[in-house]
Amino acid sequence: MTDALTVAVGVTALLLAAWCGLAAYRDEPTKDWHFIGMAVVSLLALAQLVVGIVALARGDSPQESTAVFLAYLIGAAVCVPGTGFMSLSERTRWGSLTVVAGAVVLAVLEVRLYDIWGGGRA
């Protein structure tokens, strides 16, 4: 797995969390621009899923369990889209906070994916 992609997903997820957090602070629901941001983060997470599966298919393996690695990859790919759909049903500031929570969870999942793959191993 590429460390740059992991960092990109984590950083964009935190930027999305800050952006939607500002909307929640202003007592606003998620808007079209927020959904574009969610799409960007989701596409990066989907690209990471593909890169991870290709790495496994090539014979690379995570330092920890492959099943756990795949579960984290899939969870990371569906985290932001799931909270985005939930924010559609809650058209208040709480919808924005739902996206904040999902984006922060995604950033934490990225740190864990880095550890599972064996980040920092020589």
Rank of each mutant, 00 (worst) to 15 (best):
A45C: 02
T98Q: 06
F85N: 07
G102L: 00
E110T: 08
P81E: 01
I36D: 12
A71D: 15
L97T: 06
Y25C: 15
L106M: 13
L56K: 04
D60I: 11
G102I: 01
T66I: 07
L88I: 06
G118Q: 08
E28G: 09
G82M: 04
P81K: 00
S96N: 04
K31T: 14
T98S: 10
H34S: 09
A76D: 02
A101Q: 13
Y72L: 13
A77V: 04
V68M: 08
M86N: 12
D115R: 08
A23G: 14
M1N: 13
D60Y: 10
R121M: 14
V11A: 10
L22Q: 14
T2D: 13
L14N: 11
T12Q: 14
A71G: 12
A8R: 09
T30P: 04
C79K: 02
L106H: 03
V80D: 01
A4V: 13
P29M: 05
G21V: 04
R26Y: 14
V50W: 08
T12L: 05
G59D: 10
M1G: 10
V50G: 07
R112Y: 09
D115W: 11
V50A: 12
L73T: 03
R93N: 09
V100C: 08
F69W: 05
L109Q: 09
A39F: 08
L73W: 00
